[in-house]
Design a protein around this nucleic acid. Structure first.
Lengths: 162, 162
DNA sequence: TATTGTTATACTCTATAACTATA
DNA sequence: TATAGTTATAGAGTATAACAATA
């Protein structure tokens, strides 16, 4: 929850040396998007990560918690807390997996489906706002390239563990 | 420092619903880049943020701590710790600002200049690795668009404070 | 013996408040 | 009264270890 600040944050000021830096640019984009999109997901239990889980559940068959964790690239210990909160809010339901009594299948409830739809609409507005500098064809191009990178990035995640 | 894991992380697995999500893609890119580039900056005090500060200092006149904080979009309280460590390592030097005795000007030492040069070379390799899916012209395009977004994002940072 | 889900703990990062010395 | 820098504290987020039930 935002509180009033006693002291002002440092004023943003450009620096030519940073603009070639991929890490800096990614951080700026990430921060700007978080701030813009926070309103779209702050009602959801777990905030951004709760949203991520709901979106992942919105297609396909109910996965086990472990498979779900792999899809959204979250630790399975985090998944437990997250699902506890989402289930308490009535947005998801856990059922025993008939094929493996250790596992539990996670599915969206009707309320969960409504919540994703609403949140997704607000998220789309936030995405549009953050990419406002780009014209339509540039925005499409950017998203296409970013998605390709992200797909590969997800595959390589969890490998370098030695 | 990486420790051996007792339990394996969840296996990465694709999910079609996520691939249109800008937040997810940014998170994947950010995570992948962090993991890839960590080796380039782990020797530096403050890690990635230490690197960021050194890069910002590599052009122009020595700024005050507050101006520097604005350039790299870090809080001024974080800047204090960071500069303490960087100064202890002999990479930066703080001098009193002759025009304002409250302020201190931060500059790179020769050792600091060497450290940035070295780190920048390793970072460039990491950037290349993360963008490996893109051909040369696509990579240029992606970086150009991302930098434009990031520049605007930085300007808008620190405004929404109500 | 290995795996799914759970719980507990520790560590990092970040945000905020409060203090000092100057302006 | 406001600002530059510092210090201290609390809260998220994350990672790891260890446990119970099941394979």
């Amino acid at each position: 929850m935002p509180r009033t600040r006693r002291t002002a944050p440092p004023a943003p000021e450009g620096n030519a040396a940073l603009e070639g830096d991929l890490g800096w640019a990614v951080r700026m984009l990430s921060t700007a998007f978080s701030r813009t999109a926070i309103g779209a997901v702050e009602e959801l239990p777990g905030g951004p990560r709760g949203y991520l889980v709901l979106v992942a559940l919105s297609v396909g068959e109910p996965p086990t918690q472990l498979v779900l964790a792999g899809q959204v690239s979250l630790d399975r210990t985090v998944m437990t807390y997250l699902l506890d909160d989402l289930e308490a809010a009535g947005l998801v339901a856990r059922q025993p997996d008939p094929r493996d009594r250790r596992a539990r299948l996670v599915g969206l409830t009707d309320a969960g489906r409504d919540a994703v739809t609403q949140a997704r609409r607000k998220i789309a507005e936030a995405e549009h706002f953050v990419l406002a500098d780009l014209d339509d064809s540039e925005a499409v191009q950017f998203r296409t390239l970013l998605t390709r990178i992200a797909r590969t990035a997800q595959r390589s995640t969890g490998l370098a563990d030695c």
